[in-house]
Design a protein around this nucleic acid. Structure first.
Lengths: 247, 247
DNA sequence: CGGAGTATTGAGGCGCTTCAAAGGCGGTGG
DNA sequence: CCACCGCCTTTGAAGCGCCTCAATACTCCG
């Protein structure tokens, strides 16, 4: 199930949803895979300032992009789930402004940036798809900024859970009603700009309103309309480009 | 000075700093300009959900990208200054997840996405430069997310002012010691995730520590090391790719 | 069975918001 | 030319949301 091939096909499928790929495109992209690497949790894939010449395709597990402050506190700026390509910008530069770390035991495939770039430039439809993929990344990041800047803790959490739910569903890792989130409450706090203590209280409140239930790392959304309303969540931004293609 | 041609040349210069452009590239990009449009402040260039088939080159003034909540509060996710291309993602899709609004009287040039796309696909170096440009946008947005998520009001403000200072300098609009920020305190609050009241108090505190002085819309940074330290500011992320090219 | 990391809960404090009001400044029209 | 109006800035006072500190319980794993 969670094989290297599965991850690559999921990624290609997502690209295909963004830009109609030709059979040649799919073939070129399918040739990308190199050896998978298994990493423990809390492993630093990239540290800032350092040059890094590979992109990361996530096969299983969970990877977070983050920026760290001098005092050690940090803010996650993205979660990357199985089937995601974590470093699409590596096409443009080997320098990273942010760090990448596994949140749990994770399998990734390192795709050399040179290969990625060659594939991108070889086909206009792939170029287009890569742009669109980066645009979705940016749309998600914008929502995280809105979360941190303008929503209170419960709305943030609700919006965040809705996003993870949809993305889990999109990558075939679960449904929007039930999925696995391999992150501790402290790590969720780093994504939302909250402390682990307040994440705990916020989750408790959402549980008590019967919007969600939690069993270990399994999240169940019991009342989707309630949660979506609470988080002011509109899934459009996650499907923006699929819609564009349909039009 | 702030002519359409100047803005286009500034934009091309920035691209050239990201990826070595050929003379043909420069020529192709120089042919992009269409008629400039003058807009009043608080003019909506894009509203969400709507399709939009042009990218915006800023000639003068200030444009903000933002996402609005149901209750009317909003979070800015980017400022676009003269010489910036505000909608590089329009290469990939006509659908916008966020809105675009002028903050003051502003002149823009609407570049048809079809033209932009054609130019991008015609040259691998331009494609590369566009990717790099989008990567810088994403790096800036990530810093805004960190600002809202993990920094207190004074650090946020300090970081924000440092960013605007450097970007003003980069686009030849001023120096990092003295520049114009055409935004009200309420609008600055929308960028930082603060209320206008607290923006006012925060600016007062920074003035009293002799880090900055303010005269109307003119910001003077009196003590750059102090302000940068206060905001935990490292300008690397704004010049990431220039460095990459130098290497 | 012991230890480390995580979850949970309480108490107290601070930072930012909210509400409110007054003053400044530029623009517009009588 | 001045009176007026809207927007912005500035300041005060009070309240609340989230943080900090702290203690206990849980769970996984060796």
């Amino acid at each position: 199930m969670l094989s290297t091939r599965w991850a690559l096909e999921t990624f290609i499928g997502r690209l295909a949803a963004l830009s109609p790929l030709t059979p040649d495109d799919v073939e070129a992209l399918s040739a990308l895979t190199i050896e998978p690497v298994r990493l423990r949790g809390n492993f630093d894939i990239i540290t800032p300032g350092q040059e890094f010449h590979d992109a990361c395709l996530i096969v299983s597990g969970l990877v977070a992009r983050f920026i760290q402050l001098r005092d050690g506190r940090r803010q996650f700026t993205a979660f990357h789930m199985p089937g995601d390509l974590a470093d699409i910008h590596r096409v443009a530069t080997p320098l990273a402004g942010s760090s990448l770390q596994t949140l749990c035991t994770t399998t990734i495939v390192r795709v050399p940036a040179t290969q990625l770039k060659a594939v991108a430039l070889a086909s206009p439809t792939i170029t287009h798809a890569f742009f669109a993929y980066a645009a979705v990344d940016a749309a998600v990041l914008a929502q995280w900024a809105v979360n941190a800047g303008r929503r209170d803790a419960q709305s943030r959490m609700a919006h965040f859970l809705c996003e993870v739910a949809i993305r889990s569903e999109q990558s075939g890792q679960g449904s929007r009603e039930e999925f696995i989130l391999e992150a501790s409450q402290g790590q969720i706090g780093d994504a939302l700009g909250l402390t682990s203590v307040h994440v705990n209280r916020t989750l408790k409140a959402l549980r008590q309103s019967n919007a969600i239930s939690i069993d270990g790392r399994i999240i169940r959304i019991l009342n989707w309309p309630l949660l979506a309303a609470h988080g002011d969540f509109d899934e459009g931004y996650l499907q923006l480009l699929e819609q564009a293609r349909a039009a």
